[in-house]
Simulated scan of single mutants.
Amino acid sequence: MMKRLSPWNLGATLYMPATRTDIADAILTSKVEGLRSLVICLEDAVSEEDIPEALNNLQILLETLAKAKAASGSAHWPLVFIRPRDVSMGARLVKTMNLSPIDGLVLPKFTLASLSAWWNFIEHTHLCMMPTLETEEVYDVEQMRQLAILMFGHPCHERIIALRIGGNDLMNVISLRRPRHLTLYDGPMGYVIKMLVSVFATRGFALTAPVCEHIDDHDIMDKELALDMAHGLVGKTAIHPNQITKIEAALRVSDNDYADALRILNSSQAVFKSLGAMCEPATHRRWASAILERAQVYGIISDRGNGGIVRVPLSQQNQG
């Protein structure tokens, strides 16, 4: 069975300001359909003057979740993370609040220089990490290469579920905002995402896609999601519940890809043709394994558009 904290279980990660008072309902009552992961945000989504209110709400929420967990367990919950404002707030949360119901922290403005400060107080907890790459250093491929090498050999490696790409913050660094009629890939972020995938995915780190802030433009969302999948990203930040079904749909595996993946993992041939394309198990095996993992979580959808979603039990995924 796939680990609960697998990056494939993130799906559409919904960000909710910690000032909201309905977060417990979203976690405990399936109020938000299809929600797999949620981030309680104390950073950009909360103004400075509202921090005391947000922290008070968080304290009440944690007490509510702790009681619910003690009563019935939490295996059915979405993954729940907190995004503190900075390192000092993160350390304060760990020291003063009961974070036992929480799966991990989203680390804002994460850099090579801040890794040790975050790890100093996370190391001795159960918390996993989702560092966010969103500062000017991200544009420097050499700095990203150094960060990837350091994290790969660091004890934190086992705690990192995925790296989050902070699209809006990265655009802000260069004084830009995504045009309404273009995907994020049509501007400078297209290069940045490609570079980050090249640097981090080659070392086994999963990456998630930035938010699409044009909430009502479903055509742009669909185009962007197709590019997210083409770049191997494992999920996407959502800022509105109506984006969740779109992201879930993009993460479903086509029946053709699923069939190819099974053939690749079970074939004794070095090269063969499938559905008009060359399949080469020696070079396509890692792709095929990822396809089966996605299918296990999100199901299979027909390429011909004439079938429903098929869920794939792990027992049926013969990987040879």
Rank of each mutant, 00 (worst) to 15 (best):
M2N: 05
R4M: 15
W8M: 13
L10Q: 06
G11A: 05
T13W: 08
L14M: 08
T19W: 00
T21A: 10
D25I: 01
D25P: 00
S37N: 07
S37D: 07
L42I: 11
V46G: 10
D50M: 15
I51D: 06
E53D: 09
A54W: 03
A54Y: 06
L58Y: 05
L62K: 00
A68T: 07
A71Y: 01
A71E: 11
S72E: 15
L79N: 04
D86H: 11
L93G: 05
L93Q: 08
N98M: 04
N98H: 08
S100W: 01
S100P: 02
S100G: 03
I102M: 01
L107H: 05
A113L: 06
S116Y: 00
A117N: 08
M129E: 03
L133Y: 02
L133T: 01
V138I: 08
V141E: 14
Q143G: 03
R145L: 09
A148M: 11
L150R: 15
F152T: 12
H154K: 05
C156E: 00
H157T: 00
H157E: 02
L163R: 08
D169Y: 10
D169N: 12
S175Y: 12
R180T: 08
P188G: 13
V192S: 13
K194F: 08
V197I: 02
A201K: 14
G204P: 12
F205Q: 10
L207W: 05
H214K: 07
M221D: 06
L233Y: 13
H240V: 02
P241R: 03
N242R: 14
Q243L: 09
K246H: 15
I247N: 04
A250T: 09
L251A: 10
D255N: 12
Y258F: 14
L262S: 06
L262R: 11
N266I: 07
S268V: 11
Q269E: 15
Q269Y: 11
A270K: 12
K273C: 04
S274T: 06
M278T: 09
M278G: 00
C279E: 04
C279N: 05
C279Q: 11
P281M: 09
A282Q: 13
A290K: 15
L292S: 09
A295P: 04
Y298R: 04
S302T: 05
S302K: 01
G305W: 07
I309E: 12
V310G: 03
V310Q: 10
R311S: 15
V312D: 04
N318F: 02
